[in-house]
Design a protein around this nucleic acid. Sequence first.
DNA 1: GTCTATATCTCGATAGAC
DNA 2: GTCTATCGAGATATAGAC
Lengths: 231, 231
Amino acid sequence: MHGVMEAHAPAGSSSRDADGTTEPGTEQRIFDAALHVFSNKGQDGARMQEIADHAKINRALLHYYFRSKAQLYEAVFAHGFEQFVSGLTPSLREERGFEETLGTFVRGYIDYLHGHQEMARLMLNECLCGGPVLTSYLERAKENPEGFPALVMEDRIRAAVAAGEVRPIDSEQTMLTIVSACIFPFVALPTVRIFHPEVEDDFDAFVEERKRHVVDLLLRGLRPDDTGAAP
Amino acid sequence: MHGVMEAHAPAGSSSRDADGTTEPGTEQRIFDAALHVFSNKGQDGARMQEIADHAKINRALLHYYFRSKAQLYEAVFAHGFEQFVSGLTPSLREERGFEETLGTFVRGYIDYLHGHQEMARLMLNECLCGGPVLTSYLERAKENPEGFPALVMEDRIRAAVAAGEVRPIDSEQTMLTIVSACIFPFVALPTVRIFHPEVEDDFDAFVEERKRHVVDLLLRGLRPDDTGAAP
DNA sequence: GTCTATATCTCGATAGAC
DNA sequence: GTCTATCGAGATATAGAC
């Protein structure tokens, strides 16, 4: 049986544009191709041949860079997950008021998803099957919650409720709703496309409209009854 | 090559409790087992052996009832999809006011998902990969939109906006948000569980709270500024 | 580092006895 | 209707030349 140890990882093999704007090296091409195929077909549906084709290399080379399909998958996932968490954190600086914080968070979240739709699908795929890969990463993220955007935002909501900035609602449920409203439209795109073909024509406009809508609906829904009350 | 024609379908083979409350027949057991495995592993990740094990039968018998894996999958999907659409329609009777309609729709949606979590995951799985099976069913549903709950609800929102019952918002975006808020928590359950283990303890209570929260947040978010204005 | 060729194995599907 | 045994396609992974 094949013991799973750390990959040999040819490190700096991909000439990372040392001389200006070189085309991506082999390792990077594999990475991109793998993300593309995994996100569309899932870990099981993906074929190493298809990944190799997309990267314009031979199948054997995949195993040279990443020993196995499982390790390739985990590498792709790990990279995307890390980037996801780190890319979202800066939008949660302390000094803002709640409304601005919420707006910045939602817009940042949707912008990220817009720019990384494949990663979004990959993560939700893991979510669906209760994948061990995602689970292990979340367990680790849970250890320092201040580094995990969704948990930070949930705390902000809790604090805003305590401060009377928003009406008394369940912060956990609210956070769930926010995340749902941001993520779902991207993962359900194939369905949305069928009923609203116009989305396809100008996807950027759709995303912008989405940001406005979500922020607007949430702020209205969370605002206390007495809007102008200052004690 | 194996031409795909209609399955021979041993019709009334499963003695459907002709004599009281018999245990489910073979065909029904296969169905349940298939839904279970497909929803957790996806169409590609699922193994016929695992389905057979769950149904407590032999692998060959699967091919006797449903000729191929693809046909088994489609049969399971078709059944669930039909049940989904038909189970949701009655909550959209015309004669209600908007607030009641929205509340009934959301509660009905969440109740259905609660009772059919595996079907929810199965459909989202199809959604993620732009699956041809889901697509073909949606295309058919699109032909008579009045039979498709989400589209009917979207029209109700549009009408409510026109009537001034809700403030002027994009009904398409709003419908997307509603669906997101209902479905996502169920498909993301593995993730939710990690951060909020208490959900597991009393899942029914969580779902009830979810219904209240979504309806409440939406109604607040959609209500016109002048709540009591009657011209 | 990259390729061709091949070994190995898993899984879906079928044949045929009972 | 249900089982055992087996075939054959297709996928991962490796060996070895260049």
